[in-house]
Design a protein around this nucleic acid. Sequence first.
DNA 1: TGGCATACTTGAACGCGTTCAAGCAAAGTA
DNA 2: TACTTTGCTTGAACGCGTTCAAGTATGCCA
Lengths: 226, 226
Amino acid sequence: MPSKSTSSSAKAEETGTRILEAALALFREVGFDAASMRDIAVKAQVATGAAYYYYPSKEAMVLDFYERSCVDMEPKLAEALEGAKGLEARLRAVLQVKLAHFGPNRSVLRALLRNGADPKYALSPFSTETKAIRDIDLDWYQKILLDCGIRIPKDLEAELPGVLWFFQMGVIFFWVIDDSAGQKRTAQLLELAVKSVVTLIKAAGLPLMRPLRKTALELIEVVKGE
Amino acid sequence: MPSKSTSSSAKAEETGTRILEAALALFREVGFDAASMRDIAVKAQVATGAAYYYYPSKEAMVLDFYERSCVDMEPKLAEALEGAKGLEARLRAVLQVKLAHFGPNRSVLRALLRNGADPKYALSPFSTETKAIRDIDLDWYQKILLDCGIRIPKDLEAELPGVLWFFQMGVIFFWVIDDSAGQKRTAQLLELAVKSVVTLIKAAGLPLMRPLRKTALELIEVVKGE
DNA sequence: TGGCATACTTGAACGCGTTCAAGCAAAGTA
DNA sequence: TACTTTGCTTGAACGCGTTCAAGTATGCCA
């Protein structure tokens, strides 16, 4: 229990974080593919196979980064939502926090989105491995929608957090492949897309929109599956 | 010039198609990843490195398949459009033809969509390598929209083929990862999504929609880039 | 016919992600 | 003290996609 008795496992943990940091540093520098496990091992000053004692695969390192990011972002998100009233401002704030947080590790996130939306790959925001993160995000969007100042049709209410999460993923997806200077295009897209989404949600309540909304709800049911 | 004189290059072409067929057969049987170049070579009865005389990479075989499919589908598309009047019927027809044509090679297409929409990977419907195919598809959608019976707002007209192509890619993307029996979920999605899209296009002409449409057009401009 | 260029084919070799039998060191037990 | 257990580390080896120097066969011209 004192520091002495945990010296072994403490050293191990130190080795683990050293490996993760070496990996992330190399991912940032040369990209996920170009960073070899051998390079990572050299940088972390361990043997070639050492990383596999801590991570089942190279991709698992990205997953770990994704999970840590989710936790680290929570206070930033809470703070950003303090100062943002109204759905449009809140959506913008959340997305800006996320992009800013992921910012330096854009190439790491690119690896996460490599397999698109295929839940069969662990390294996908739709996989079972990332379900916990997805659920946390959904809670955020539920919170954002509460008292946002917009009348939400009753039948849409339950689905809207999922829709906004999907929208968020679309923005992030655009961002990771956006090679414009400082991801300027993503900034423009964010502005216009958030505005469009909020306008659409407002419009969804119109009586005229009822048939389209019903069809859209069926569509959502199919996409959710099972 | 007679069959004798071309015996060498003819044999080579035969070898090339044998390699492609072996590859596609293995892709279908065990999937793109599990099918190794060594297995393909054995099946095609050539040496390990032989495929690289015909294809620069394993992925290039998928690209070749994609290009051939595009050509092979043309008569089927023309025929399907003969019997389909109205935008909704036409859209449904085109997508059904495509899915039916790709049908047996769903796992091959999965490899094509592996890298999502990243134009940096050759194996992506958004890459420069697949631009020719994209342009052919865009021509089809332009044709579909001509005299489709729906009044299209002038400012949207030029962008709509691209939007529909994007929509098509979404459907195909859903299809390749849809593991429901016979891809039943995709059939349901297709029905509802086509209906929604057509309704949206109709609605886009309404005076009420002008601001949203203008924002959407700006959005399209940003996504198209440069 | 012989010689040469061109077209095609070969399989060993490279670096990759990953696996694993073996080794090592520190903590627990007697 | 010696023995065992546990936690951690090692590097050789595997199969993968890919490369390429070397080989073989074919068509063409003297």
